[in-house]
């Protein structure tokens, strides 16, 4: 299984991931991260692990891991 992992503290809410996500899995938190942005969140049910968010993110927020254990720990 693939997991999608986020480093939310890096998000600057540019919304490029949101604009390109093919499955409308991305939304923005009501909370602020340390930098003061409403950081991106992923709906893991809708997410198809295509990696487009990783491709379009300028700030290294996203990672896709192929690691069942890690998924289990979440």
């Amino acid at each position: 299984m693939e997991s999608i992992n986020l480093k939310s503290e890096r998000c600057k809410q540019c919304e490029l991931c949101f604009a390109h996500c093919p499955s409308d899995a991305i939304s923005f938190s009501n909370e602020l991260n340390k930098a003061g942005f409403n950081f991106a969140c992923v709906d893991e049910e809708k997410c198809i692990r295509c990696g487009i968010c990783y491709t379009m993110c300028p700030d290294g927020v996203y990672a896709i891991a192929i690691n069942p254990q890690a998924k289990g720990e979440q």
Partner: peptide, 25 residues
């Protein structure tokens, strides 16, 4: 089948570019 996607360690740090700046990509 999804591929593993991970920011390379070389630049896996917060960068101070503006939001949406192309430099990061």
């Amino acid at each position: 089948m999804a591929k593993e996607r991970k920011v390379p360690a070389l630049i896996d740090n917060p960068m101070s570019f503006c939001a949406g700046c192309g430099h990061g990509i």
